[in-house]
Design a protein around this nucleic acid. Structure first.
Lengths: 239, 239
DNA sequence: GGTATTTTCGAGTCAAGCTCAATAAAGGAC
DNA sequence: GTCCTTTATTGAGCTTGACTCGAAAATACC
């Protein structure tokens, strides 16, 4: 098989356009019917090609789904980055709030795709969303968190991987709880408290202690230490 | 079809034994080959029955899988309760540590079953692990948490649902990270820090404020108290 | 022992993923 | 433009595996 570079431009473009049509049709059908419910014949019909043609682009139904999922995760990453870019507020916690809100909603709306991303690996050996795609997505959080540390809004000794696990893990779990306990209509109402509480947890646990009394360069800890030393001196004095 | 109560004891016992054999065989085959990879013929063979017989016990392959999953979650609940019962330490955080360790390991070892529990609902309409089974499992945590509040080890105003989401969600996410980034061999090594950090987070965020020895976490009230003690000492000295 | 009922069975049906030989389209040489 | 080579497309058919169903075996009841 010739590599892409060997094929003239027009041909290559045409092939990629067709591949895109297949991918679009596949995404629509997978979203509507799920993985098992989706028919290859339906995907072919919607892409205006023969059923056999799909198999000259993708080895199997599972690999086609994989391609759809990777496109999906790439889209999520771009959207998350867009959310970060469009957030007017500069502070860490405002941005975290925006990211949490976006992610929780995403998790609920796209629950089936997200589940499939992890379930596929099991069912079909060696077929799973690549680690890189997931890493790229969570990199949005990682960057935000590190920047928060640089700006002294977060503790320096905060552990990034734990914060990441808490953030994405808790929101995913909350999302599942929300969609399990209520119909698809009034989901939005319950998302607020979840996001607020998540931000509150981060502020309390990873945020810098912002005591209003810490005037100048003297911290409360230093004051406390000084007091203890003074107390010891007095103890010696009185004996 | 006659109900169970109408059938004489011997017959009922025999039928339930056969149903158990099917369930056992199904669990083995599902674990080995996954849902799609599992063949109904293989399950029938291992259960020493005809393939058609399965369908007089379970409507479909998906429903059989559902039965296996429910048995699986029931087992998890029992094990979690056993872990709580066998933990010698009475304190909340020691028990939480034990539960976190158990759950993280469970999530890693049974990742495929757990994923399938949520993925199945999507693929096959109306087929999913019942909310009750999941609720029963997380009830172990809920009970522990409430008891911690009763014993004044946890803040009274701590929000149970958030703690639950953080606990199970984060551990599940951490488990996925662990199994994605390393082979099946040395998983145990990486579980320690995850569990420790989870307990530390709970101690800091949900736990009652502790003694003033904690550096960097000194409240104004504590400083005030120290000052008052010092003042008393000075008073005695000057008399 | 005879009959009614229930349970078991596996060959057959059906549906869907996938293959492949035939066909069409495109590219290149002259 | 024509011939030939190479590549892309196609859908009828193959294969596989979940599921059905009529018949037979087992069981219950009298």
């Amino acid at each position: 098989m010739a590599t892409k570079a060997d094929i003239p431009e027009t041909q290559r473009v045409k092939l990629e356009r067709k591949e895109g049509a297949i991918l679009d049709a596949a995404r629509r059908v997978f979203i509507e019917h799920g993985f098992d419910g989706a028919r290859m014949s339906e995907i072919a019909r919607q892409a205006h090609i023969g059923e056999g043609t799909i198999y000259s682009y993708y080895e199997s139904k599972a690999e086609l789904m994989l391609a759809v999922l990777q496109q999906f995760w790439d889209g999520l990453t771009l959207e998350a980055e867009a959310v970060m870019a469009s957030t007017k507020a500069e502070g860490f916690f405002d941005r975290l709030h925006a990211l949490a809100q976006y992610h929780l909603n995403t998790v609920i709306v796209n629950a089936d795709f997200i589940n499939l991303s992890f379930a596929l690996r099991r069912n079909n050996s060696e077929v799973g969303v690549s680690r890189d795609h997931l890493r790229q997505y969570v990199a949005v959080f990682d960057q935000l968190f590190r920047r928060g540390q640089d700006r002294d809004e977060l503790k320096r000794d905060a552990i990034l991987w734990q914060a990441r696990d808490v953030f994405y893990g808790s929101l995913e779990y909350s999302g599942r709880s929300i969609e399990m306990t209520m119909g698809s209509d009034h989901r939005v109402r319950e998302q607020g408290p979840v996001v607020d509480q998540m931000v509150a947890l981060f502020r309390a646990h990873y945020g810098m202690d912002r005591e209003p009394t810490a005037v100048g360069d003297v911290s409360l800890a230093q004051l406390s230490s000084q007091l203890e030393q003074l107390s010891e001196k007095l103890d010696k004095l009185t004996k």
